[in-house]
Amino acid sequence: MLVQWRDDLSIGMLEIDVQHKLLFDKFNAFVNAYQSNQDTDEIMRMFWFLEAYAVTHFKEEEKLMQQVRFPDYAAHREKHLAFIDQINQLKERLKAEGLTQGVVNTMTTFITSWLIDHISTMDRAIGRFVINSAVPPGI
């Protein structure tokens, strides 16, 4: 299940929007690798890279929230930590069960819905806050 970027997911902050699009690209590369029966090691490398990029993105987003004094920083960070925890649980399941259709379906369903929901609600709130606060867009 590929996830497609939609313009309505844009939060109005170029740096964050570009990172979100890259998250979608990395996720889709993982799904495509699995669906095209690439080597298991290659598929796993794509998943680990997706995970690492998500963590990097979260750190950048959290740094931005601190810079602009985003009032819901703590709650937003908790969502990031919950995502990472869920990914860690999926990694453990991958280790135990291997790269099965069931595990991949669980992963893709979780990641797809989480990304779209998180971006369209939590991240959009950051964009609105920055715009309404007249925080310089370069931050």
Rank of each mutant, 00 (worst) to 15 (best):
T109S: 10
E78Y: 05
D7P: 10
A125W: 01
I126Q: 03
L22A: 15
D117A: 13
L64N: 00
Q89D: 10
S113L: 14
L14Q: 13
N132E: 14
S113D: 15
L81K: 06
A96R: 03
D85A: 15
I84K: 01
F49S: 12
Y53L: 08
E62I: 00
K21I: 09
G138V: 15
E61Q: 05
E60F: 09
Y34E: 01
T40D: 15
I84Q: 00
W114L: 12
Y53H: 10
Q86K: 14
A75T: 10
V104A: 02
K26H: 11
F129A: 04
H118R: 03
P137K: 08
L99D: 03
L22P: 03
N28Y: 00
L94D: 06
K95S: 08
I84M: 05
H20C: 03
D25H: 13
R128S: 14
V31H: 14
V3A: 04
E42T: 12
R6C: 15
L2G: 04
A33T: 07
E61Y: 00
R69M: 14
A54P: 01
D25E: 15
V68F: 00
V3E: 03
T109Y: 04
A75Y: 03
T112R: 13
E97R: 00
A54L: 08
N105Y: 07
L22V: 11
P136Y: 01
S36A: 07
Q35F: 10
R124S: 07
N28K: 00
D39K: 03
L90M: 12
V135N: 03
I131A: 15
A96D: 07
F47I: 04
L90A: 12
N88R: 09
T108M: 11
G12Y: 13
Q89F: 12
M13E: 14
K91C: 10
G12P: 03
W5M: 02
